[in-house]
């Protein structure tokens, strides 16, 4: 049993990042992953529990100079109902609609969903499709330092990322998609709520004169991390979505994925769904 010795709730980012620099800190935001993981004994509290919910700056969603920035504390519900997101990045809304349940959406934050680094983390898939990066803030020599890393390089394994313990993921950023951008998300499971993904697929790109360009494809729950579907992207880039191209893409998707058997699904079913969903999403678009 680990004991929390200290609880802090900073109101400024710098304050939080400085505290993080001292080490031994557990960050809590929505708590929707942290609490059950603590209860299951999968992780333990560090001596300091830091609630970052009071840092107002971190839950803003903005569009500046062609860049959309979502603060790490934006909840899944806030993203779903945000005008900027609705207008430019509907694929995030499609995903939010499939995410957990109303109560969890109201509490769960985008930063938490990313840092939890579950291979099945739903919100990560559309962000990969949007080509997002993350901003990591740390305390260096009396000042805050920020580095920006592409999201598709962020994940190292289930629950593992390149984020250092002294870093706070403060925002996720992506270029405002073009007017031709189409994005589609699909999640398995018959349950309209509270389903843990057995397979998720996201596909996005600019659809111009029937051709799909700047394609990005992402898969969830079919490998140790959420992953980009590079072979699928190659199969689709610059192509008109004919029946053949779509079935090539579905076959490529199965190559991109490396699913495992677990109690939620077999490898066979995950491979099967990857192809089914890839075809379904492409058929939705053309």
């Amino acid at each position: 049993m680990s004991e929390i010795e200290k609880y802090i709730a900073p109101e400024e980012v710098a304050e939080a990042v400085e505290a993080l620099g001292t080490g031994g800190v557990t960050i809590v935001a929505g708590g929707t992953d942290l609490t059950p993981q603590i209860n299951e004994g999968r992780c333990h509290y560090e001596p300091t529990l830091m609630n970052i919910q009071r840092i107002e700056e971190l839950n803003r969603i903005s569009l500046t100079d062609g860049e959309i920035r979502i603060g790490c504390l934006a909840t899944v519900s806030e993203i779903w109902y945000n005008d900027i997101i609705i207008e430019h990045a509907d694929i995030l809304c499609q995903t939010a609609n499939c995410f957990a349940s109303d109560q969890i959406r109201n509490a769960a934050t985008i930063g938490g969903n990313i840092c939890n680094a579950s291979p099945a983390g739903d919100m990560i898939i559309p962000l990969l499709v949007l080509g997002a990066s993350v901003e990591l803030a740390s305390w260096k020599e009396g000042a805050m330092e920020i580095r920006r890393e592409p999201l598709d390089k962020f994940f190292k394994g289930p629950g593992k990322t390149i984020r250092n313990e002294n870093e706070l993921l403060v925002a996720v950023i992506f270029d405002k998609p073009s007017a031709d951008f189409i994005g589609q998300f699909r999640k398995s499971g018959p349950r309209p709520a509270l389903e843990i993904s057995t397979v998720t697929v996201g596909i996005g790109g600019d659809l111009k004169d029937g051709k799909l360009e700047n394609v990005r494809v992402a898969f969830g729950a079919v490998g140790p991390t959420p992953l980009r579907g590079k072979a699928t992207e190659v199969a689709l880039e610059g192509q008109i979505l004919t029946e053949d191209i779509i079935s090539n893409a579905a076959a490529a998707a199965q190559k991109d994925a490396s699913p495992i058997d677990d109690i939620r699904a077999t490898t066979w079913y995950r491979n099967h769904l990857i192809a089914v969903f890839t075809e379904e999403l492409l058929n939705n678009v053309c």
Binding site: R191, P192, I263
Partner: peptide, 9 residues
């Protein structure tokens, strides 16, 4: 992972 039906089902 033990899936009881939810209301919308």
């Amino acid at each position: 992972d033990y899936k009881v039906p939810t209301a919308p089902e």
